[in-house]
Nucleic acid binder design. Structure first.
Lengths: 213, 213
DNA sequence: CCCTTTGTATTCAACTTTGACTAGGCTACC
DNA sequence: GGTAGCCTAGTCAAAGTTGAATACAAAGGG
């Protein structure tokens, strides 16, 4: 799973209705062009595919109000909303995700109820623990760890990553349980998109670290 | 950059000459089908593209010795060797890599001289430090961290990952400097592929954690 | 008033990835 | 001795990704 569909659905949902360029601008506002594969080509491709699959409804070409070619407005269908929450839950629950999916999930986490967010993150922690267990078990040869040579460093790496991932996730769970942030159904939602004609204050210069573990 | 070319070149180099199925088996032996995108389709695609680009030389269809359709043997050209080392260095040097690229780089690190491996990993550490710096600087709004809401957790996540990544890398540098493992030009290289007709002792059940940061 | 620049909005070709499918030959069993 | 299953070896269509290119309108400058 890539982060692009999750990001696009999340952006359109916050607007109610949006065209491709608007989505592109939001993702840029979020810095997503730096830490995910949210390039224009990918965005428009995702829009068309999701429209084809009934996740989005295309409102045919409204003439542009601010110069440029005509544009297509998209709206998230009921089916698309289901898909959005499925993707969001998956992004938060599973530990074996690309970094951009997790980042997208965190950015959109407040679309879920607080309890559910906590439950999903706990599943994530459990996944890390299980991964750690299976890695250490698998890479413990009878002839002693030396027999693996430098390959043992892979185990080392993964164990380190599992521990770090679990630790951070647990910290987040604690903060959420202590009442931090505003989740679904708790009043004024956090506004994460640009209004019509609003300037993007973070035009460029966002930190960059796309992938990696 | 994906890990597939690095893995394929690394596998063929260790055999001297290999056909697609053999590469596929090696990658499975390494567990790479679990932690990278090394599916059959990707492997054969990479072989053909790299042959087209002169990184590999195709020795036309030797009839299979063990049943099945005829097969094409590939050999790494001089140009391919250069590319291999360029990819390997990149995998180890840059911190903003997908997890599978780093794992592949670690698995093949002993193809480099010890000094160079250390130097590359030090660059990696420096990259993490710089990333950490730029993230904390960027996400420190004048109105206080509260104004970011849950988006501040993204900064938190990235800082945590930068610290964990730098820490693990530093540990590895220490171990290598203390003389661990056998690097290029230090005698008997570590054997990491299956011999002709050898059984894969790790048929399945490898730990699984492909991507994520 | 023409012409370059800027901003809006999207398209496209080339390449990569995915998962399922094809296809030949060997072996073991009834 | 036929046939089902398995291993060897690779192909393919559909989907996703990339980076550059296109198209159109308004704004600004000489």
């Amino acid at each position: 799973m890539s982060a692009i569909r999750l990001l696009v659905l999340g952006a359109i949902r916050q607007h109610g209705q949006a065209h491709g360029y608007q989505v592109r601008n939001d993702l840029e506002y979020w810095g997503a062009h730096e830490w995910s594969n949210a390039k224009p080509g990918s965005i428009y491709h995702a829009l068309k595919q999701m429209a084809k699959q009934g996740l989005l409804k295309a409102h045919e070409i409204a003439p542009s109000t601010a110069g440029g070619p005509p544009r297509t407005e998209y709206e998230v269908t009921e089916h698309g909303t289901e898909e959005y929450f499925a993707l969001l839950r998956e992004a938060l629950r599973t530990y074996d995700q690309k970094a951009d999916v997790l980042s997208a999930g965190i950015g959109l986490i407040v679309d879920l109820p607080r309890d559910e967010a906590v439950a999903l993150l706990r599943e994530r922690v459990a996944g890390f623990r299980e991964w750690r267990r299976s890695v250490t078990e698998y890479y413990t040869p009878e002839e002693g760890p030396q027999s693996l040579g430098h390959i043992g460093e892979l185990m080392n790496l993964w164990v380190h990553q599992a521990d770090a991932g679990a630790e951070w996730t647990e910290g987040l769970v604690e903060r959420i349980e202590s009442g931090a942030y505003t989740f679904a159904g708790e009043g004024q939602p956090f506004v994460g998109v640009l209004g019509e004609g609003e300037e993007n204050p973070y035009a460029t210069g966002v930190p960059h670290a796309e992938d990696q573990r």
